[in-house]
Amino acid sequence: SNREKAKQAFKELLRDKAVPSNASWEQAMKMVVTDPRYSALPKLSEKKQAFNAYKAQRE
């Protein structure tokens, strides 16, 4: 689905920018907000969900 693709793109973005798994949401956003993939997930709640999944995978 498109939403799954968007989630993957967002997680790839976090990986590409080397966002550490112990980063806070605010720290992570400063690192990725300028990338076009930041807008892949329109809802903030979805971004946070993908971010938390990313962190869980990295730990």
Rank of each mutant, 00 (worst) to 15 (best):
S1N: 13
S1D: 06
S1T: 13
S1W: 05
S1L: 14
N2M: 05
N2H: 00
N2D: 14
N2W: 08
N2T: 14
R3P: 14
R3I: 14
R3L: 14
E4Y: 04
E4F: 07
E4Q: 09
E4T: 05
K5M: 13
K5R: 10
K5N: 12
K5L: 10
K5F: 08
K5W: 03
A6T: 05
A6S: 10
A6E: 15
A6N: 08
A6G: 12
A6Q: 13
K7G: 07
K7R: 10
K7M: 15
Q8C: 06
Q8G: 07
Q8L: 11
Q8A: 10
Q8D: 13
A9F: 03
A9G: 08
A9C: 12
A9T: 15
A9I: 14
F10T: 12
F10A: 11
F10E: 12
F10G: 08
K11G: 10
K11C: 14
K11T: 15
K11L: 15
K11I: 15
K11M: 15
E12P: 00
E12C: 02
E12H: 07
E12Q: 08
E12N: 11
E12R: 02
L13I: 00
L13S: 07
L13N: 04
L14D: 03
L14Q: 07
L14T: 03
L14M: 02
R15P: 02
R15K: 11
R15C: 10
R15Q: 12
R15V: 13
D16Q: 05
D16T: 06
D16I: 02
D16R: 01
D16V: 01
K17W: 04
K17L: 02
K17Q: 09
A18G: 15
A18E: 13
A18Y: 01
V19L: 02
V19T: 09
V19Y: 00
V19W: 02
V19E: 06
V19G: 04
P20S: 03
P20K: 01
P20V: 02
P20E: 06
P20T: 05
P20H: 01
P20N: 02
S21A: 15
S21N: 04
S21M: 14
S21V: 14
S21L: 15
S21K: 15
S21P: 10
S21Q: 13
N22S: 13
N22W: 12
N22V: 04
N22C: 09
N22L: 04
A23E: 03
A23C: 09
S24K: 09
S24I: 01
S24H: 07
W25G: 10
W25H: 06
W25Q: 06
E26R: 01
E26D: 13
E26F: 01
E26P: 10
E26W: 02
E26T: 13
E26Q: 05
E26S: 09
Q27N: 10
Q27C: 05
Q27M: 07
Q27S: 05
Q27W: 00
Q27A: 11
Q27F: 00
A28H: 02
A28I: 02
A28G: 04
A28L: 01
A28D: 04
A28F: 03
A28Y: 00
M29Y: 13
M29P: 11
M29D: 11
M29Q: 14
K30N: 11
K30Y: 00
K30R: 13
K30A: 12
K30S: 10
K30E: 14
K30H: 06
K30L: 05
K30I: 01
M31Q: 08
M31V: 07
M31A: 08
M31E: 11
M31C: 05
M31G: 09
M31H: 09
V32Y: 02
V32G: 06
V32C: 11
V32A: 04
V32D: 06
V33H: 15
V33R: 13
V33S: 15
V33T: 13
T34K: 10
T34I: 02
T34Y: 09
T34F: 06
T34H: 14
T34E: 13
D35M: 01
D35V: 00
D35Y: 00
D35T: 01
P36C: 06
P36D: 12
P36S: 06
P36R: 09
P36K: 07
P36H: 05
P36G: 05
P36T: 08
P36E: 11
R37I: 09
R37E: 04
R37N: 02
Y38M: 02
Y38G: 05
S39A: 13
S39W: 08
S39Q: 10
S39L: 07
S39E: 15
A40I: 03
A40P: 01
A40S: 13
L41I: 08
L41A: 04
L41N: 05
L41Q: 07
L41K: 06
L41T: 09
L41P: 07
P42M: 10
P42Q: 07
K43I: 01
K43C: 14
K43F: 02
K43L: 09
L44C: 06
L44R: 06
L44S: 10
L44N: 04
L44T: 07
L44D: 08
L44K: 08
S45E: 13
S45L: 03
S45N: 13
S45F: 09
E46K: 00
E46V: 01
E46I: 00
E46M: 05
E46R: 00
E46D: 14
K47L: 02
K47Q: 09
K48T: 04
K48P: 07
K48V: 12
Q49E: 15
Q49P: 03
Q49N: 04
Q49I: 07
Q49K: 12
A50E: 09
A50V: 15
A50I: 10
F51K: 06
N52C: 11
N52G: 08
A53W: 02
A53M: 05
A53Q: 15
Y54C: 10
Y54K: 01
Y54W: 15
Y54Q: 00
K55A: 07
K55G: 06
K55L: 10
K55T: 09
K55S: 08
K55M: 06
A56E: 14
A56H: 11
A56N: 10
A56I: 08
A56F: 03
A56Y: 06
Q57G: 12
Q57Y: 01
Q57K: 08
Q57W: 11
Q57R: 08
Q57S: 14
R58Y: 15
R58F: 10
R58C: 15
E59G: 09
E59L: 05
